[in-house]
Design a binder for these strands. Structure first.
Lengths: 234, 234
DNA sequence: GCCATAATTTAGCCTGTCCTAATTTAATAC
DNA sequence: GTATTAAATTAGGACAGGCTAAATTATGGC
């Protein structure tokens, strides 16, 4: 039996938290992300452990098993293929793809996944610039990126990822031209981390909170993974 | 809150049974179609009644309310749009579209539905020849069709619908050229209802069980709804 | 009209997923 | 080292959706 949406969402969340801070991940961090009560997550984690999708130490935290990671990465592949498809073939606006993909990722078949990948010619990155795991379900490499908030005045960088966050922010960023593949220059870093960028010869100010979820690569170490047209084939 | 897949599937089944035999529909007919125990369906029907999606008389049967019918028709629209899309844009083989659409129909948003319809240019029929309900969610008209099993030797008819049934049968029928829009002639009706057809100058024998789920229109009363290219725009 | 049978509901139980409130454990301050 | 506090678990309850077995109702034959 394939895992339920609740199980898959929990695995996906643990995966992301492990990427950000390393294992073990705490119960309340998971609960916060999923917007569920802690006690609900505790009982879900018990079931995950029964199914050998995670290992855990009570009061310490949880960690994905290989089996659990594979499930998480497959869901991630679904999510990113769907986002790419929605944007490229159904003309979805950038900021709406996340919500739709978040639901559908749990319900598409292997067949659907294959045909999606084929139709898209095995894309390597989704519309936010995030890497799409391959058919082998190896976890994608971490890119050599830093948050925009860590840049200094004068830096010339390429926007590499604009992570999923709320729709309004994404719509605004797309509107002013801040999308993966765009080259920008840091014009100013003001108090409280407010950053001013030169985007296509126009200045745009970005508050620090938003800047932390935008990843960039220095123009010196640009590789194929951050070329402007980042949808290569396999 | 939008209805769960279980609720939607039950409404869809009642809708189909009402079309076939008229209300009220019996509990065990629903249970058979859904492959659930009768007692399970009884408790689901109680919940449907609480939500005013059906009316029912214990031991007599159930009937959709306007509200219930609208939900059923919307799910039907999702199903048929998805089938059309899978076949036309993702290159799904005819016989696989049903299963995938049956899952996804419960999980797509209104936005997805709109973009699907737009991309397909508001198709009126799905790949099986079934009518696709419009945005207004009016139940589609019943076509002036009869089952292939009711034809007589010498009749010239157009295949109008080949209803969803098991994948192997559909694959076989597609293989021998029996798909919506094809004109055929009845060559022979043998004992036990075995029917022989002339399809593109080749004879094909179809057992009665299969022939009952194939609908045809006489070549005399062909209207736009059964033209060979049946995907018109609105 | 009564009886056998088929259809249906009721009773009772289970699991998954959710919650709040109470308790326990771990970590931190001092 | 103890006291406070934060994190996590346990206790207990709700509801949806599933089941089997037992009881009930309707129906068709005669």
């Amino acid at each position: 039996m394939s895992p339920s949406p609740v199980i898959e969402d929990t695995l996906k969340t643990i995966y992301h938290l492990q990427q950000e801070a390393g294992p073990p991940v705490g119960t309340s961090d998971i609960a916060d992300r999923l917007d569920k009560a802690q006690a609900t997550v505790t009982s879900t984690l018990d079931r995950l452990e029964d199914q050998e999708l995670i290992t855990r130490e009570p009061y310490q935290g949880s960690e994905l098993t290989d089996k659990g990671r594979t499930v998480a990465v497959e869901v991630l592949r679904h999510h990113r293929l769907l986002e790419t498809y929605l944007a490229d073939h159904l003309d979805y606006p950038w900021e709406l793809v996340h919500e739709e993909a978040d639901r559908l990722e749990h319900h598409i078949s292997e067949e659907f996944e294959r045909r999606l990948a084929e139709t898209l010619e095995n894309p390597r990155r989704d519309p936010h610039g995030d890497p799409i795991p391959g058919e082998d379900l190896e976890p994608p490499n971490q890119d050599p990126m830093r948050p925009l908030s860590a840049c200094e005045v004068g830096d010339r960088v390429v926007i590499t990822r604009v992570s999923d966050r709320n729709e309004d922010d994404l719509a605004y960023l797309a509107d002013v031209g801040i999308t993966p593949g765009t080259a920008v220059r840091i014009v100013d870093v003001a108090p409280f981390g407010m950053i001013t960028l030169d985007v296509d010869d126009t200045e745009q100010a970005i508050p620090e909170g938003v800047a932390t979820s935008i990843r960039v690569t220095s123009l010196n170490d640009v590789d194929d993974s951050v070329s402007v047209d980042h949808r290569g084939d396999a």
